[in-house]
C-alpha cells in the first residue's frame, strides 16, 4: 500500500498534527515503507482466529463504588498551561 498525500493529510488531521507541504513526500514514503512491512501479515491465514486484545485471558476486575479521591485542584492546576478561577482555559470553542 502506498499512501498518497491526501491520505497523509487526512491522517495528520485526525492525529492533530501539522504536516508542512515540504514534509508530505517524506511522510508518504516513510509511512508507505512501514505499511509494506505490516502487510506481510497478508500471507497469513487467520480464518476463524479470535483476535487477541489482551496478553492473558483475564476478566475485568470491578472496584466497589466508593468515593476515595479528595480535591487536588490546586496541585493539578499548578502544572496547567492556562487555568483561571478553577477552570482550564483553551481558545474559544465555537460549536
Amino acid at each position: 500500500m502506498t499512501l498518497d498525500s491526501k491520505t497523509v493529510h487526512t491522517i495528520a488531521r485526525l492525529s492533530q498534527l501539522n504536516i508542512d507541504d515540504g514534509e508530505v513526500d517524506r511522510y508518504c514514503q516513510e509511512l508507505s515503507n512501514i505499511l509494506s512491512l505490516v502487510e506481510q501479515m497478508e500471507q497469513c491465514d487467520t480464518t476463524d482466529i479470535e483476535p487477541m486484545t489482551h496478553p492473558f485471558d483475564a476478566s475485568l476486575r470491578l472496584r466497589s463504588d466508593e468515593v476515595t479521591e479528595t480535591n487536588q485542584r490546586e496541585k493539578f492546576q499548578a502544572i496547567a498551561p492556562q487555568a483561571e478561577r478553577g477552570l482550564y482555559l483553551v481558545p474559544k470553542v465555537i460549536d
Binding site: T10, L17, L31, V38
Partner: peptide
C-alpha cells in the same frame, strides 16, 4: 513530539481508521 513519535501516531491512526 519528535519525528518517530509522529510517524507512529500517524501509522496507528491510519491502522484504526
Amino acid at each position: 513530539f519528535g519525528e518517530e513519535v509522529k510517524r507512529r501516531i500517524m501509522i496507528g491512526t491510519y491502522a484504526l481508521s
